[in-house]
């Protein structure tokens, strides 16, 4: 469905993504795991065509998103939905208008039909009856559910999730996770989930990609990741503070820094 070929993303000196290859399979959930700064959100945005990679190709059903005109990209967007990290509801519109937004903008459907669709989508995320609320009146979990309803309002083939559980309480997080699982299993959608939440990520994944400092260090089924012998993978999955990914980010010698900093105690050597 989506295939990233040797994606290179360069912000300044160090590459944020270094020749990343990812395959997103149709009607399955692909989870991209990685720590903060691993480049996973950038990768997701490249897959959705929001960001142009410095180099490489993004094949979406046989079309290279990085090299097609905007008009065609917008046509392809009817097959994509996205749930942003902070929900990104349009704050001037209420819940109903947010969910109905794409339908109002792009479809010639009758308002009564749109109303039916919106009601169905809100029912699916358990928020039917809250159509009149404004985004500012919603809790983080509810906003995320509305964002999900909005993403699936146009029945896309693929839905992108950027950190779906971050900033949510355990119950809200569980709700979102189970909604994602349902969507893939019952509605046969393709999901791409970017997260640093190992447990949640592994529990819904059909396929896992583990990113570390802009490079793919492991991919495969969740069991394979859990049972991996790679030290870096183990450290990430188990959440150990120190290991091959070092605790200390300093590159200079501690003793040297202490000795040469003015005002610090001089050690007799």
């Amino acid at each position: 469905m989506i295939r990233c070929e040797s994606i290179l993303m360069q912000y300044g000196e160090t590459p944020a993504l270094d020749h990343v290859e990812v395959d997103v399979r149709d009607r399955a959930t692909t989870v991209i795991l990685g720590g903060s700064g691993s480049g996973k959100t950038t990768l997701l945005r490249i897959m959705a065509g929001l960001v142009q990679p410095t180099d490489g190709r993004v094949w979406f059903e046989g079309e290279d998103l990085a090299h097609i005109p905007r008009k065609r990209l917008y046509e392809l967007r009817q097959y994509m939905g996205m749930v942003f990290q902070y929900s990104a509801l349009l704050n001037s519109l209420n819940v109903y208008d947010n969910v109905a937004f794409a339908l109002h903008e792009h479809s010639k459907l009758d308002e009564s039909i749109i109303h039916t669709i919106v009601t169905m989508k809100l029912e699916q995320v358990g928020l039917r009856g809250l159509e009149h609320l404004m985004p500012s009146q919603l809790s983080g979990g509810m906003a995320k559910r509305v964002a999900l309803a909005r993403a699936i309002a146009i029945d896309p083939k693929v839905v992108f999730f950027d950190e779906p559980t971050s900033g949510l309480d355990p119950i809200s997080a569980a709700v979102i996770i189970s909604l994602i699982r349902d969507m893939t299993n019952k509605m046969r959608m393709t999901s791409v989930v970017v997260t640093h939440d190992v447990e949640a990520g592994l529990s819904i994944a059909d396929h896992v990609v583990l990113l570390w400092q802009g490079r793919v260090i492991a991919k495969g089924a969740p069991e394979n990741i859990r049972n991996s012998t790679d030290e870096r993978v183990c450290q990430f999955v188990e959440g150990r503070p120190d290991g091959p990914i070092p605790f200390s980010r300093s590159t200079t010698s501690y003793i040297d820094d202490l000795m040469h900093k003015p005002g610090t105690v001089r050690l007799e050597t």
């Binding site: 945005r45 959705a48 929001l50 905007r70 917008y74 046509e75 967007r77 009817q78 994509m80 939905g81 996205m82 942003f84 990290q85 902070y86 929900s87 990104a88 509801l89 349009l90 704050n91 937004f101 794409a102 903008e105 792009h106």
Partner: peptide, 14 residues
């Protein structure tokens, strides 16, 4: 900041 601009972009609105 709240990614509403990206959300518009994702919904094929320039």
């Amino acid at each position: 900041v709240t990614e509403q601009v990206d959300a518009l972009e994702m919904m094929a609105i320039n």
